[in-house]
Design a protein around this nucleic acid. Sequence first.
DNA 1: TGCAGTGATGTTGCCGAGAACAGCTCTGTA
DNA 2: TACAGAGCTGTTCTCGGCAACATCACTGCA
Lengths: 339, 339
Amino acid sequence: MVSVGSHKPNIRQVAVIAGVSHMTVSRVLNDHPNIKPDTRRRVLEAIEELDYRPNLAARALATQRSRRIGVIVESSGAFGPTSILSAIELAARGAGYSVAQIALHEGDGLSPQAAVESLMMQGIDALCVIAPRSSSVAALRRVVISVPMLVVKADADPTFLTVSIDQHAGAVLLVDHLVALGHRDILHISGPLDWLDARARERAFHSRTKSLGIRERPIVVGDWTADFAYDFAMGLNRLPDYTAVFAANDEMAVGLIHGLHDKGFDVPNDLSVVGFDDVPLARHVLPPLTTIRQNFHALGVAVVEMLRAAIEEREIPAFTRIPTEIVTRASTAPPREVR
Amino acid sequence: MVSVGSHKPNIRQVAVIAGVSHMTVSRVLNDHPNIKPDTRRRVLEAIEELDYRPNLAARALATQRSRRIGVIVESSGAFGPTSILSAIELAARGAGYSVAQIALHEGDGLSPQAAVESLMMQGIDALCVIAPRSSSVAALRRVVISVPMLVVKADADPTFLTVSIDQHAGAVLLVDHLVALGHRDILHISGPLDWLDARARERAFHSRTKSLGIRERPIVVGDWTADFAYDFAMGLNRLPDYTAVFAANDEMAVGLIHGLHDKGFDVPNDLSVVGFDDVPLARHVLPPLTTIRQNFHALGVAVVEMLRAAIEEREIPAFTRIPTEIVTRASTAPPREVR
DNA sequence: TGCAGTGATGTTGCCGAGAACAGCTCTGTA
DNA sequence: TACAGAGCTGTTCTCGGCAACATCACTGCA
């Protein structure tokens, strides 16, 4: 029997090699002051020699802190939530936290509450929910948990810490862009209205068009998918009265352009189209899409910063708004009558 | 002082309420046999009453099992890796496992080894690496860990458990489709050749065109981005000799179509184009893209099934191949001379 | 009647860390 | 010379579970 234990070394074995108590090793690991440099060196050498790594489960048990953040993300297939999740993970790692993630897929029967519970059992220090739907926000409101909770959603909320991408400003940028080109009659194809982002974009569209004195026209309620917008376009039998379409996301914008094309209409000459998201392909579809770019990186940083502050019980504002910018491309042009 | 402890109940408090020892509670929690139905009921009632949830960190410490799978994913922005990760997470949850994820972003200085170590410290039962590059696979070969390790990559590998999407079959389907349409001169725009998927698709392209007796033509090595393919197309000053292009992913296919369009060439009338991935927008870009659909769901299930078997030390094949299918759309048509 | 077998439950100790407190060794000062 | 206080390190206990073994009450059978 070879004496080099094949199993993972623990803090006491390190202590034996270094000729100190395990608490001294623990102090070195946690950067406590008042450790003699020579002792520290011996401990570090022993750690090196054994290739020791602390057991985080044991540490979590002892400290009641896991340095782990739970993230719940809905419709993880979509571009927005995925990008947000990835940005949070990166920012969390930068702050020394890891991420435990649960994706709520449609119809897999996992309720937001169950997801919260499952994460809490894993011992998270804080919870972040990427909650695009009002129904899930309502469900969250009833959840009581013992760690800080932050929600990424379209608007501020007194119940939670909140980080929002500025949907309103983005929608206003798009409307202003179209109006500047000369459009006076714009159709809005929204996302499903129980999605907060859809609702925010729709409200911003209404209030901006109204304040600019533009014709009030009923919106079309879509479902975010390109298929929906394609089918809608295929239902048009002649060029409509409106001269521009504001689709609530890029996917619908692309589907719409596809359908218009199949119906023999040209974008942007017959109709201008804008989207929202700036998905990677938005720049290269035909015609390239005017859209809104969201700063996911800034969002991830803000989420982690706010959660850290909450964990450490520092005072911070409970709300952060992330700016957006418009990206102007060939899918928008002045309407015919102006040219 | 109210006696209802504001802090989380533990197994001993449950035991007191139920009037049993804490081990009986543990047995109920873990579905041991030989518990009297009446006792079980009392324990469950006490759990309910206290709203007790087991502490998974403590359980992991005691059992040396975390029911957590580590996943390392490279270039998490890309469609493929993201879809794979999401599929694995879903399948893992179905099997009662959670997922600890680390994304390797380009240039964030985290090596695959460091990622492995970081996950091991978190106490994972098994490791899955979504490793698209040969360099990372080479790095992994030198990693020694004490848990089962599975790599999702383009081909089988004696070193690891492996799950592969059948890149070869997919590429063959595309070549055969083009040849069936009458194309005899096809350009391949590959991904970066240190990516295993790119390499596999390129090799399949070569071997299939060769065995069909089609003109050998040097490939163009791309970088997966639509921008690259766009620029490539913009460099064409006249219609090339080849009549079809096999782009190694959808993004490059779309960028290429964009560039060809800007140069005044028409797809598919001047040139047929195929991609690989079937991204959500592939169906709605103009023209809709002929491409390869990969079964990510099946992949996720296979990954989790193989890892479970390895964790439980059951015998299983060390390699699973996931099939692909071709989706034929309007970006491909017979070449001019055939019509 | 005695006893082995088994079903149901309890007792003790350990997993690998950190907290709290105790204790030792200096140093400087009265 | 005594002693306070700071710096450094050790001892013991705890976190919340589970494994291993111990115990006890039945049951069935020789």
